[in-house]
Write a protein that binds this DNA or RNA. Structure first.
Lengths: 224, 224
DNA sequence: ACCTGAACACCGTTCAAGT
DNA sequence: ACCTGAACACCGTTCAAGT
């Protein structure tokens, strides 16, 4: 009989199989993470969002880890862009550090995506190159500049991991229970310093916390 | 009849169902992670190692996350123990920071276990309490001491995450490919600073890297 | 009270077969 | 060359039923 009726349930797919584009797959994966969180990103869900079979993804990404590395790389787009003229080296470091933090914050679970992978793509490499460059211009040796860049990046990743974990907790139903548990544990007799720290520990002023930590490192650099 | 025979450890299931002990489950889970890595730790494998059905675990841990938090808490045992007498505040900070780093390094993927959870158990709380205490003794306000403690912990976690990722990469078959890729990318024309940084970036002197970063923070503190 | 057994609704990954 | 369809060997979690 006539071949006209064969495409019944396929609301997207028409006659030919869809051809998959790698950059679209990466941005779609990031969108899925933004919508439902990293734990909900599966190869099968991504395939469905791309209107493709799950197995097809493995023609473009060897494993899920490879996909995650591509996502981490994509997140850093623009982070190494040119710095405004006339900044002091302190301001240059602050600018670069702020860019990385914002890049990780821009996507839900962005820090986890970044920390869980090891990208050697151009965005990642040029970011590190730029940061090491700024540090070398302050007079640091290549080794000291590299170690300092690593220190700064490790602080940013650790900080943002915590910041996004706090965000996730704030949106979850566990928040009251955790806060109660924490408050109950803050017995001044047992944890005298934690009791004094409660206001700061439960504060959501992550901008302030970040600035404090980064300034500590920058100050250490100046004292060299 | 005496109760003498009931304590036999029954390494296979005998007549009665095995009764599960929570502390044993946590240490067994850490052992499984040490043996096969965090990605291989499943509730079903842990159940099998405990000679119990998978569903039984849910009577003791609400979710896998709860188990991971208990593991993170267990890893920090002893980290807040008393400091030797006669240390300067710098040495006290270095000692506490080193203890946390070593605690995370002691188990495979320890930093990932720690970073992925949010423990409010006594080991975690008393570690933070002790660190904040040392910082307050240097004259810092409760807020500054808390923020500084967070900075130090975030650096340690970020650093150790990277250190264990490098360890995992070193043991994997991807190492030569990654190293080649990195070396190829180190074109002095494109990434001049990365080229100068290669020796440091590919070095495995994590003790040195850690000391450099921590000293930067401590120096920043001294300049306050 | 605590565990078993079995199920539910998924996973990452592979690969012969189609076009 | 690139995708589909179907399978393999698993997952976390729930819950009626046993003891």
């Amino acid at each position: 009989m006539g071949p006209t009726s064969t495409s019944s349930s396929a609301q997207r797919s028409r006659g030919r199989p869809r051809k998959m584009a790698v950059p679209e797959a990466v941005t779609t994966a990031l969108r899925l993470v933004d919508e439902d969180g990293l734990d909900s990103l599966t190869m099968r869900r991504l395939a469905a969002a791309l209107d493709v079979q799950a197995g097809t993804l493995y023609r473009h990404f060897a494993t899920k880890q490879t996909l995650l590395a591509a996502m981490a790389e994509e997140m850093l787009a623009g982070c190494a862009g040119p710095l405004p003229d006339g900044l002091t080296w302190r301001e240059q470091i602050t600018e670069l550090a702020g860019r990385l933090r914002m890049a990780l914050l821009r996507h839900r679970d962005g820090a986890r995506v970044h920390a869980g992978t090891h990208s050697v793509g151009p965005n990642t490499l040029s970011y590190t190159d730029t940061l090491v460059g700024v540090l070398r211009e302050t007079g640091l040796s290549p080794e000291a500049a590299t170690r300092t860049a690593l220190t700064i990046v490790h602080f940013i990743v650790g900080h943002t991991l915590e910041e996004q974990a706090a965000q996730a907790l704030a949106e979850s139903t566990e928040l009251p229970a955790t806060l109660t548990l924490l408050h109950a544990a803050l017995d001044p007799g047992t944890y005298p310093n934690l009791a004094a720290a409660e206001a700061t520990l439960t504060s959501t002023d992550f901008v302030g916390h970040f600035a404090h930590g980064l300034n500590l490192i920058i100050k250490g650099l100046a004292g060299e």
